Computed example of a mutant assay.
Amino acid sequence: MPSPAIRPVVLGGIVALAVAMGIGRFAFTPLMPLMIRDGGLDAATGAEWAAANYVGYLVGALTAARFADPRRGLRFGLVGVAVTTLAMAGIGGIPSPLASLFAGAGLRAAAGVFSAWALVCASGWCLAELARHRAEALGAWIYTGVGLGIALAGILAWLGGRQPADRLWLELGLIAALGAWLVWGFSHGASEAGTAQRAAAAPAADRSGQAALVVCYGAFGFGYIVPATFLPAMARALTPDPLVFGLAWPLFGLAAALSVAGVARWLKQTPRRRVWAVAQAFMALGTALPLAVPSLWSVAASALLVGGTFMVATMAGLQLARAAHPADPTPLIARMTAAFAAGQIAGPLTVRALGLLDIADGAALAWTGAAATVVLVGTAVWLWCEA
């Protein structure tokens, strides 16, 4: 059980990542099929809004290190996620289709910026505080928040699948606002003293291999994004019932939360490069499966395989960043997150480019999924050999 001094840090990290990633980054995935169903969105516009979110995430990752106090960036990020999510509820009321298109793209881009700030700053603040209390092993637990947030958004979309999508955005925005308020309280009482002491007492940064970490993290972003973006849409193509296709995303999120909890509980001493390598190997299988065998069972298996590994890889990568730069991991975490964002931008753009070459959507996804599988396997082999 965490001590009273570090309990707010762990709880704050869990809630922060649930809001920033589960809602700010990923809520659009289960809601996009419902918005298309409601007639407020088409597939092409949905892809453009998703791309805007990825670009915003890249901008946020590139600017997150500018916050001298990571808690300030965390708070700004979470408030921004809540505001942009609430604003998405009003997109359907805009009479002009062109204005609606630009408003939606702008809100998704802003949500990407805010969620990147929150992820980078939450990781920097939580991991540094836990290290100060010699409780680094608890750092893995904060990343269960991402899966919990994804599962929450997915379950809300699944249970409310017969509601208008606008109402679901409103409900998620209120949940995000509550989460931002909670994290504000958790982080307010955290120690402000000791930043200079940590910088003076921490071991020197190990710059060897930092570039390789950035490259591998970017490859991970490219590899996971095809199933992470298109799984609910794949499921919807196989069945029109939202109570069936809507299960893909809750499964994804629950698998993410449980897998991180399992690693935090039973694999504390396992080298993080090996944890990351194994996670990417299973992710590669999950990426390839629904493209090779399009069926509901393969989509469900992919949700479990990719959902059960992408946050393990995230956790392991960011813990390696902390180990490589103990005094202040935020700049390295920001560079890795920027590489990840660039990789995930490349995934949908590749699908779109193949589609523009008159390749059917399914073929475009298959070719992109094959490339993602090769990239994931290649980096997994490298990580295992370097462990």
Rank of each mutant, 00 (worst) to 15 (best):
P271C: 04
R198A: 12
F102N: 04
M32R: 15
V299M: 08
G209M: 02
L172H: 06
R167M: 13
H325K: 13
P250M: 02
F186V: 01
L182N: 09
G22T: 06
A128I: 09
G80V: 07
G90P: 12
L349Q: 04
Q210E: 13
A339V: 00
T29E: 01
V260K: 03
A364C: 10
P290Y: 02
A372Q: 07
G92T: 08
P240W: 06
T144H: 01
R274T: 11
L318K: 04
L17V: 00
V351A: 00
A321V: 01
F252A: 00
G104K: 07
A338L: 02
A248P: 15
V113C: 06
R322A: 15
V183A: 03
I150E: 06
F76R: 11
W276I: 00
G173M: 07
G221K: 11
S259W: 03
A366F: 15
V299W: 12
G189K: 15
V351M: 01
R66F: 11
V278I: 13
Y54I: 08
F310L: 15
A387C: 05
V260A: 05
E386C: 14
V260M: 09
A105Q: 14
A346K: 00
P227D: 02
L170N: 05
T84F: 10
G378Y: 02
A87L: 15
R66T: 11
P242T: 03
A211E: 10
L101R: 15
I150L: 12
G223D: 06
N53R: 10
V215K: 01
V351K: 00
L238V: 08
T239Y: 09
A248N: 07
R352Q: 04
W158Q: 07
T330M: 07
D361N: 11
G124S: 10
G22P: 09
L318F: 14
A363R: 15
I359N: 14
L296I: 08
P348M: 03
P33Y: 12
R66C: 09
Y54S: 13
G223S: 13
W297H: 14
L238H: 11
S187Y: 12
V55T: 12
Q319R: 13
P250R: 04
V19W: 05
L231M: 08
W384I: 02
A256D: 11
D166E: 15
A321H: 06
G40Q: 12
P232S: 13
G112M: 13
L170D: 03
